[in-house]
Structures are given as structure tokens and as C-alpha cells.
């Protein structure tokens, strides 16, 4: 009986288990427990949530492995952690300590301004952000087993996540009605690997799970992203920067399951206390936008 680990099926498969769920940013074991108790399907362990990374400035790096290990010990659900774009040694360290998924994330300061990590070299699966189909398929080509929109992290403004989800899903729809002769030019124009363009046309969706991220702050935001056609939702600063994190977290979990049921959405949206203080992404100078990081 031959046993194989770290296969493409295994990497993609864990993301499939997260579908219809909410992945929450947490900065310590206590927050991780609150997230798990609220029904999170996974947590993202990091030292500072994106809103604080923005406020603090400076270089944002991989979190202390000891802090990540404490979160791993505290919860039974999968634990993800972030490494810098192109920083394959941070990824090696995260793999060595046993994180379940690595987010090669634009929220941290990039370590390489031309190249991403060759993610096929790892047994641990990776999730990467994207703004459009070309970026999504380049990351999948490098071995990302899960994709998320970039949105604009740490703003509490969902507008960029909507833009990116509509762009990816719109391109998939567009591919469905294209002739096969048009696919190579589509690949060229979008900077996307041709084989993956063909696969997307055949499947009618990305070949991996696709979540929303970057600016989701309310149950209605989460349900909006689900109705637009994503498979699940990341919530970063939106939970623990709000007035009542436990209640808001549970409400967002419910909103992702019942995303098509407006009466349930109304019920879970009641009395959540203050949402995180938002920052209007449209009025933000280009230099402060995190979504432009990634190549």
C-alpha cells in the first residue's frame, strides 16, 4: 500500500474543507479560542492585524514562531500563517513548525519585488491574493492551492474585494463564451499560463478554492462576497478591531452559511456594537495601498 503526502489533491483538498467558512486573523491564543468558539473554520496567526500594520508602518515580517505555536496548541482547527512575498525561507520555517497553510501575503512587506515563491517546492499548501484572473492563474501556476481576493486589507472597506472578485468571476464568465482560438491571446493579454486558461474555460471556475479577503467588516459584507460567487471569507481586522469581537465573529460565520437568506442576515446583523473604524480605500494614496504588491 503506497502512501503519498503533500500531493496537489491534498493541498487543494484542505482548502475545499474550508469552503462555506470564515478564516479569522488572530494575534494570540486567547483570540484564537474566541474565533474557534465563534465557529471559525481556521485562523490566521499573525503578530499584528493589517489595520495595525498600516498604523505602525515600518517593515512587516513573518510572526514569531513561538507565538504561532501557542496558537496551534490552543485550537483544534487549522492554523495559517503569513510569510512575505518571495521570502521562501520564512515559508520553510512556517512549514517546519507545522502550520497548515501559508499565506504568501501582500499585507507583509515584500522580500522580492519581481518573484513569488515557487510553491510547488513545498509540502505545505499556500494561499495567495489576486486582483484579477491573470494574477490568480500566475499564483496557481507557481503552486498556490487556494486563491483569495486581495481587497484592501486593514481598511474595513469592502469596495476593493468586490472589485477583485467581480474581475476574476467576470473573466471566468467571459472565458465560457470564448472560442478556443481566442484563448492564447487571452493568456497573453492577462499574463496567465495558457494551460490554466484552458482549464478554467473547461471547469467554469478556478481550479482551486477562491475566498474573499481585504475589507470585510460586517455580516452583510461577507454575504455580499458569497453572493458574488466566492467560496468563503477571510476576516482580518474586522473582528478584533470591533466593539464585540465574539458576537461579530459568530454573526459573520452565520452570514456565510445563510448568505442567501435575507431574514437570517437581518437577524444576525442586529446589535453587533461598533464595527471597526473604516478607512475609505478610494481616497487612499496609491503608495499606501497593499493590493499593488505582487507581480
Amino acid at each position: 500500500m503506497e502512501t503519498k503526502t503533500g500531493t496537489w489533491t491534498e493541498k487543494k483538498g484542505l482548502a475545499q474543507m474550508l469552503k462555506g467558512g470564515v478564516i479569522m486573523d488572530v494575534v494570540n491564543a486567547e483570540q484564537a479560542k474566541i474565533a474557534e468558539d465563534a465557529g471559525a473554520c481556521a485562523v490566521m496567526a499573525l503578530e499584528r492585524v493589517p489595520a495595525d500594520i498600516r498604523a505602525d508602518g515600518g517593515v512587516a515580517r513573518m510572526s514569531d514562531p513561538d507565538m504561532i505555536l501557542k496558537i496551534i496548541d490552543a485550537v483544534s482547527i487549522p492554523v495559517m500563517a503569513k510569510c512575505r512575498i518571495g521570502h521562501f525561507v520564512e515559508a520553510q520555517i512556517l512549514e517546519a513548525i507545522g502550520v497548515d497553510y501559508i499565506d504568501e501575503s501582500e499585507v507583509l512587506t515584500p522580500a522580492d519585488e519581481e518573484h513569488h515563491i515557487l510553491k510547488h517546492n513545498f509540502k505545505v499548501p499556500f494561499v495567495c491574493g489576486c486582483r484579477n484572473i491573470g494574477e490568480a492563474l500566475r499564483r496557481i501556476g507557481e503552486g498556490a492551492a487556494m486563491i483569495r481576493t486581495k481587497g484592501e486589507a486593514g481598511t474595513g472597506d469592502v469596495v476593493e474585494a468586490v472589485r477583485h472578485a467581480r474581475s476574476v468571476i467576470g473573466s471566468i464568465k467571459h472565458l465560457q463564451v470564448m472560442d478556443d482560438e481566442e484563448l492564447m491571446t487571452f493568456a497573453k493579454n492577462n499574463g496567465a499560463p495558457y494551460e490554466l486558461v484552458k482549464e478554467v474555460k473547461e471547469l467554469g471556475r478556478l481550479p482551486v478554492v477562491n475566498f474573499a479577503a481585504g475589507g470585510v467588516a460586517t455580516p452583510a459584507d461577507a454575504a455580499l462576497m458569497m453572493q458574488l460567487g466566492v467560496d468563503g471569507v477571510f476576516v482580518g481586522s474586522g473582528i478584533f478591531k470591533s466593539g464585540d469581537p465574539a458576537k461579530r465573529a459568530a454573526a459573520i460565520v452565520k452570514s456565510v452559511t445563510h448568505y442567501q437568506d435575507a431574514s437570517i442576515l437581518a437577524e444576525v446583523s442586529k446589535n453587533l456594537g461598533e464595527a471597526m473604524v473604516g478607512r475609505n480605500a478610494a481616497q487612499m494614496p496609491e503608495s499606501e495601498k497593499l493590493a499593488v504588491r505582487g507581480w
Binding site: E2, T3, T5, E10, G13, L14, G98
Partner: peptide
Amino acid sequence: NAFGRQIDSFETD
């Protein structure tokens, strides 16, 4: 989670 973490996940016949 009886087999460990994600890197220990496996396929077999």
C-alpha cells in the same frame, strides 16, 4: 486530527 497536521495528510489505496 489523528494523523497530525496538514503536511501529514496522505492518499493511499
